[in-house]
């Protein structure tokens, strides 16, 4: 099976999508899969023809992207518009991984509906959509805090290498919480009072000498 991953992050190799892809592939290669997995970066727009050819040749495809304005990034939409429908004899297997900074999965389940319909419209064999929230913080967290997340992605890759499927039970675990429960909301309110959710942003604003501009409204009418 020719397996190709399309990274739809505008941040290219410095993306969280890249970090998660690397963990996925660690698990994938654990299963003794020796053939290289091709990774195409949609941010490299000049390579579009190569990306389309790589898609045409692949039998298994996963497209991973960050949630952008409640949907896929524009460059992923551009790519999806150009993909051909699968042939009836051998439908290509197509799965998606949607990662976002929000802690809840609810933000990504709407684009999931689109992706499922897209796969149906193009006659691909839909592998499902992995949804994972809270991903943006992996850049600022110590490695120990990312252990569980990375393990989940290695398990995804391991399972995909063994079965050619994305495991439903693990996918279900990964998309929790769908929404915060009352306890979660209370905790969030308390840590908000302490300013904890904003700490990372404030630190970065200060680092760039822009903290005093944080409330700028350059386009206020």
């Amino acid at each position: 099976m020719t397996f190709t991953i399309f990274n739809g992050s505008p941040r290219y190799k410095k993306s969280n999508s890249q970090t998660l892809t690397e963990q996925f592939l660690k698990g994938y290669h654990n299963q003794g899969k020796t053939e290289p997995v091709k990774i195409c970066y949609l941010a490299r727009a000049s390579q579009l023809a190569e990306h389309l050819e790589a898609f045409r040749q692949a039998e298994e495809v996963i497209i991973i992207f960050p949630l952008y304005t409640d949907c896929m990034p524009g460059m992923v939409k551009e790519f999806l518009e150009l993909l051909p429908a699968a042939g009836n004899k051998n439908p290509k297997k197509l799965g998606f991984i949607v990662q976002s900074g929000f802690p809840e999965a609810i933000h990504s389940v709407y684009v999931e509906r689109y992706l499922e319909k897209y796969a149906r419209r193009r006659h691909y064999h839909y592998l499902g959509t992995v949804i994972k929230g809270g991903v943006e913080s992996i850049r600022s967290m110590p490695p120990s805090m990312n252990k569980k997340l990375f393990k989940q992605f290695r398990e995804l890759g391991d399972n995909f290498a063994r079965t050619g499927q994305l495991p439903r039970e693990l996918m279900q675990q990964m998309r929790t919480p769908l929404k915060m429960n009352a306890v979660g909301r209370t905790v969030f309110r308390v840590i908000s009072l302490l300013g904890l959710p904003d700490m990372y942003w404030k630190k970065m604003l200060k680092k760039h000498g822009a903290y005093h501009l944080r409330s700028s409204r350059p386009y206020a009418p």
Binding site: T69, P73, G74, M75, E78, E81, R122
Partner: peptide, 13 residues
């Protein structure tokens, strides 16, 4: 492909 165009999505982003 079932959604608003990539040109519009690009501006929306």
């Amino acid at each position: 492909a079932g959604f608003t165009s990539s040109v519009l999505k690009r501006a929306s982003d």
